[in-house]
């Protein structure tokens, strides 16, 4: 059970992110929850490729030893950039909503629309 600790951390962080998205009423906090969820996905990818006693897959004056998997790390870079793009777009929408309704609380926005 103790060897699964990184995966349990992934599940815990993902749970925090999902709970933030579902329970909070503030749009900025919901975007923060999405960021936490992205972080848990990154941690899951890096954890998936770890080998016992592995070193980083870089040959420049590398010590002896097995190397950790490299494809998942490349996918992590992709995921970070896409998470950044998503966050930027969502923040732009939040600013636009704040300009239109004067608030970023979801309750206020829905009441004003009707």
């Amino acid at each position: 059970m103790l060897t699964q600790l990184p995966y349990l951390a992934v599940v815990l962080i993902a749970g925090i992110g999902i709970a933030t998205i579902l329970l909070k009423k503030n749009l900025i906090k919901m975007i923060m929850g999405l960021g936490v969820l992205t972080g848990s996905a990154n941690l899951f990818l890096v954890t998936l490729g770890y080998r016992d006693g592995g070193i980083a897959p870089i040959y420049t004056s590398a010590p002896e030893g097995v190397m950790v998997l490299s494809t998942v790390q490349a996918m992590t870079v992709t995921n970070i950039v896409i998470g950044f793009a998503t966050t930027a777009l969502l923040l732009a929408f939040a600013i636009m909503l704040y300009r239109k309704y004067g608030s970023v609380e979801t309750g206020d926005i829905r009441r004003l629309r009707e």
């Binding site: 060897t3 992934v10 749970g15 709970a19 329970l23």
Partner: peptide, 25 residues
Amino acid sequence: LSIVLTLLTVMMLGVIVTGLSFGEP
């Protein structure tokens, strides 16, 4: 309902994750 949904998702992820082994891909 949100709390129940979160707990269900976390449990589902936990069940999936226990099948993976850490340190040996």
